[in-house]
C-alpha cells in the first residue's frame, strides 16, 4: 500500500495511508518514494536551509506532501455533478409515479363522483359533525345556507 515510501508518523489508526486533509495535515507516510535526486537533496537539506533554492524547497515539499493547503481546499465544480444526480433521481421518480397513474391504477372509485361527494357533504351537515370549529360550524341551520 505504502510501497517504498518512508513511514514518518503514526497516521490514522496506525495505518500507513497518505491523505491531505485539514483535520489531519501530517499523514503517516511521505508522498513520494525516495529517488537518488531526492536523497541528494536531503543531504543538502542537512546544511543551512538558506542555501537551498526556492525550487529545491518546493521539491522537498512535494516529496513529503502531495497537495498544498491552497490546492486541496480549492473550490471544485463537483457540486454540479451532485446537483445533477439529485435532479436526475427526482426526474426518474416523477416518471415512475406518472407511469403508475397511467398503467397501474384503475379508474377512480364511484364515490369520487361529484354527485356522491355532494351527498356526502349534505349528510355531514345534517349530522352536525364538528359543530364547534369544523365544517358544520360554518353552516347556518336557520337560514339553511353557508354563513
Amino acid at each position: 500500500m505504502s510501497g517504498e515510501r518512508e513511514v514518518v508518523g503514526y497516521g490514522v489508526n496506525g495505518s500507513p495511508i497518505y491523505i491531505d486533509c485539514v483535520e489531519f495535515p501530517f499523514p503517516a507516510i511521505r508522498y513520494k518514494e525516495a529517488t537518488p535526486e531526492i536523497c541528494a537533496l536531503r543531504e543538502k537539506e542537512l546544511s543551512d536551509w538558506k542555501k537551498l533554492s526556492l525550487q529545491e524547497k518546493k521539491t522537498l515539499y512535494r516529496y513529503s506532501f502531495g497537495q498544498t493547503y491552497a490546492e486541496f481546499q480549492h473550490f471544485t465544480p463537483e457540486w454540479k455533478l451532485i446537483v445533477g444526480i439529485g435532479l436526475w433521481a427526482c426526474a426518474i421518480g416523477f416518471l415512475i409515479s406518472l407511469s403508475y397513474c397511467a398503467k397501474l391504477y384503475g379508474p377512480f372509485p364511484e364515490t369520487f363522483e361529484e354527485e356522491r361527494r355532494q351527498a356526502q357533504l349534505r349528510r355531514i351537515i345534517q349530522l352536525e359533525m364538528q359543530p364547534i370549529t369544523g365544517l358544520s360550524s360554518k353552516w347556518d341551520y336557520e337560514k339553511n345556507k353557508w354563513k
Binding site: 485539514v22 495535515p25 501530517f26 536531503r42 537539506e45 522537498l60 515539499y61 513529503s64 493547503y69
Partner: peptide, 19 residues
C-alpha cells in the same frame, strides 16, 4: 523541524497555522 532536518514539515506547519 530544523532539528529533525525536514523543511517540508516546517512549510506545512506554517500553512496549517495560517489555515
Amino acid at each position: 523541524a530544523r532539528r529533525v532536518n525536514d523543511i517540508a514539515l516546517a512549510i506545512r506547519w506554517l500553512e496549517g497555522c495560517k489555515d
